[in-house]
Each structure stands twice: as structure tokens, then as C-alpha cells.
Design a protein around this nucleic acid. Sequence first.
DNA 1: GCCGTTTTCGGCCCGACTGTTTTCAGTCG
Length: 573
Amino acid sequence: MSMNNNEIADIFSHYADLLEIEEANPFRVRAYRNAARFISSFPKSMAEMLHAGEDLDELPTIGKDLAAKIKTIVETGSLPQMESSEAKIPSALVELLSIEGLGPKRIRALHRELGISNLDDLKRALRRKTIRHLKGFGEKTEHRISEGLTKVGTGVQRMSIARAENIAKPLIAYLEANTATQRVTIAGSYRRRRETVGDLDILVTAEAGNTITDYFSAYEDIEEIISLGQTRARVRLRSGLAVDLRVVPAASYGAALQYLTGSRSHSIVMRKIAIARDLKLNEYGVFRGKTRIAGHTEEDVYAALSLPYIEPELRENTGELEAASQDKLPQLVSLNDIRGDLHCHSNASDGHESLEALASAAREKGYEYLSINDHSQHLTIAHGLDKNRLLKQIKAIDKLNEKLDGITVLKSIEVDILDDGSLDLPDAVLKELDFTVCAIHYKFNLPEDKQTERILRAMDNPCFNILAHPHGRLINRRQPYRINLERLMRGALDRGCYLEANAHPDRLDLDDEGCRLARRLGLKVAISTDSHVMTDLDYMRFGIDQARRGWLEKQDVLNTRSLKELRQLLKRS
DNA sequence: GCCGTTTTCGGCCCGACTGTTTTCAGTCG
């Protein structure tokens, strides 16, 4: 029985739902949820750890009891305690938890009083209007459940951060236009720069007595007002994106921003640290007794807990608080550190710009170099270059470099990795280039070991330099192909190759965790835009976001180097 | 069920909004 971490986490999560409906000790429920969250984000396979005889109860959120339960799950594929719970309460009740406004208490009441066991029972009760007569329920609650029911299963998926930016921009301008508004900041996963966002958390500072939430609720793009109070409002926009607005006085700006930026688990640990110091942390400040001792800025808040400022991209409770307390936080790479772009398409293949136009755009960005990486012949749909056209492009770039000032155009290609791991053009012509970027563009469905070996064989070719978009995923559109990333990274290290962190907001591949693994292994990455039109060059910042989330420092990134150093690093010995 | 910079027992993050109440429970983030 091979169980992966997500499957174990799903079982704990489902069991937590059941326990909640059974009205078990809420802290016990939380223990299962915490463990589920931890397990699903834990990089090592629990099953393999058990196999290797490692102790799981050393891990956070996992004690002796849960360690034993994980063992049972891995060995048998299920959990006997959960099965006996399922025998007591209809498991379809768990589905009702996904209805907005229905929690365990109300579900239990519906089951006990009206015999409702599943979605169909609930629909019938709504038609008969019997729910409104239950104690604690009323007409409005009944209506809310009915509304919630129509939305089940239609939950919008998380939105790419680039799209969320476009939606946020006019909303921020609208909020700033109110004369009572002092300061507007987007917090949440948007500020932590996650690759996708589930909703927008917006913080506004204003004097007491303001009417900002009312003003916000009149924004033209709102589809539905979910809740509306004096200091907080929640709405859904027509795009499906939910927006939470919080209004606090300026004296609480830092504490509110810290709280709203999260992540949830980072914030929870912060509050625990406060408690351990006899302090209280909430969105209004850090308090000793009733006295606020910090809150104006986030720096104040962290300092009040004797911690250095932690960059939002690191706030995932994956070691940043420990690193902060030991003064070992990374100096994160920033957009200013970037000296060139190592993946750009011209109009020779499927790009839209001339060599000259790309070169001058890169120079305007202050870059020292930019490479041209058109597709190779196998990718006919993109008008990929054959040997002769590539040789012609090489000459054209040489000629262009002679007259260019302040920027060097590097000769490169995005060459296809073929079925057998060979490269799509002869070595003789690849050797004429400054370096190569190599990519998988077909046969995505190979098993993990076959795909990994295909790429490792390609790396054996001394002309191979950088592996483009290592997973080939398209966010919300195409699943990553199956590879053993750590094996590929170790293979790249052995051979003097590198991996790309593709900065296109639909790719972000390597993702944050991939970047972090590279850093742990000591492998440098190239942050590249994969530009096809001029404005794509600005995607660099999305790549930087994920690199920062992956704890990368300037020295971990290839294209923070001078051209001279870069050439040295790309040389394969 | 987890966990320990007062603790191996007794805590467990904390506050806003809504609806059904008339002081609060439930839900959510």
C-alpha cells in the first residue's frame, strides 16, 4: 500500500470534519487539522520515512498518537477510528460543511431535529420551509443556507497573481480617492506574493468615525456584499474574486498589516510568542496589559517580540521564525540585482520582436546582457529554427553586437529535448552559441523515472546548460509532468548545468519550493522571463517573487552575475 | 491530540459580523 502525504492529510482532514460534527473536543479537531496541513506541505514522504525507521513523532504537530495513526494509514490504507465514526454519523453530512454559513453545530441540529443526512434532504427541507422554525434558526438563516447551496461546487479556483493585480489596481485607486482614506495596502497572500491568490485582503487606515466600508460597498465591480460592518466588509467581485476590507486607525497599521498579511500559521506562531512573553498580539497592536507597546509599523511589532523584520514572502511558518530568532534570515534577492534575461524569443520563431528591439528594451532596463532563445526545428508550430536559420541568426547577432553600446546580446536557443534525451540540433552548431536553454515540449506523460532519465541523458551532452521550465506546468491549465526534481538538481550539479525559474506568471516554474530545494542543494538558478512580446520582459518581477519565497539570495541566482562571471559559470568543465 | 523560556497538566490566537436573541452562539478569516 503506497500512501503519499496528500492522501494521509486528506484522511486526517476528513476525520477532523467527522469529529467536528460529532462535537468532539475542538482542540482535538484542531490537532488533526494542524497535522493535515503540516503533512500536505511536508517535503519528505511519510511512508518512506516510516520505511527507513524514522520517528514521526519528532515532527511538529505529530505526537505519539498521530504518529501511530499515520503508520496505520500507511500500512492499511485507512483509519479504523474514522470508519467507526462513519458508522455512527452519515458521512454525507460532511458535504454540508462546504455550504457557506453552515458549520458543525447547525449541521448537527439539522440532522438531529429534521433527520437531514445529505444535500438532497437539505434541499427538500428548504422547499418545505421547515428549517426556519428550528431553535436558533430563522428566516434569514434559512435563506442564507439556500443561497449557499446554489454555490456548492462552483467555488472559483485561485486566481493567478498577475490577473489579481489587474483586478486590484482600479479598486485601490477607488479607495484612495476617498478623502477619509489615509493609506491603502493589499495584504494577504497577494503581499506574500504567492503564485495564486484566493481572495484580496485590503487594509485601509483612517480616523475613527469614517464611512469607508460603506463607500467600499458602493464600488461598481461588486457582485455581492457578503458582510458589511464599521471596520470590516467582505464582498465578491464580478470576476468571482472575494475581497476583504479592514479599516483601522494609523496607530494600528503595522499590527493590522502583520495580521492581515499572514500567513495564518505564521500569525498564530507570532501570537504564541507574544503570550510566552506575557504580551498580547492582535490586529490593533502588541499589548502589555492594556497598554499598547507597538503597532504603528510591522518593524515595531516584530521588534516588540525581539525579532528582526521578516519579509512577507518568507511568512509561511516554514522556518522563518526560527531563522529570525537566530538572526539567520536570508538577504533575499531583489529585482535590482538582476543584470540580464536568459530566455527571450524573437520573431524568428514564435516571438513578436526583432533582435534590435529586444536589445534596446533590455538596455533601457539597465541590463548588461540579454539572450535570444528561439525554438528549435522540432517545434514546427512555433516556426522553430533549423541549423541553417540558427547559423544565420548567430551572424546577425554578431553583427548587431558590433554596433550596440552598453548591452551584449547572447547567442542562445531553446532547444528541444527529444524522446531519447538527445538535443534537437547537432552539437556542431550548438557549440557556436554562448549557451543553451533546453526544454521538454512533448511526451509529457512519461512515468517519473523515464522522464527524469530522459532529461539527465540530455544533460550528459556538454552543450546542455540550463533546463527551461522544469515541470512544464501551466497554472490552472496544465499539470506538471512527472519528474524527480531532486535527482535532476543533483544531476545538474554533477554536470555543471543549471535550472531555470521561469518568471512567466502562468508558469512560475521552478516554483517557490523548487527554488528552495535548489538553494538547499547549492544549485544556482536562472530567473528568466520566456518573453514573446516586449511587455513580457516585465515578468521578471514575478520570477523574483517566487525566488524570494524560495529564500534565494543574490548569489543563488545566475543572472545577478556580471557577463564575465556568467560566462565563467556557464562553462562546462 | 499537542506541547512546554513560569507548565508533564492545563492550556490551546483572536476578533468582526450576522442573526436570533435580549446577552450570545455560530461562523469565518
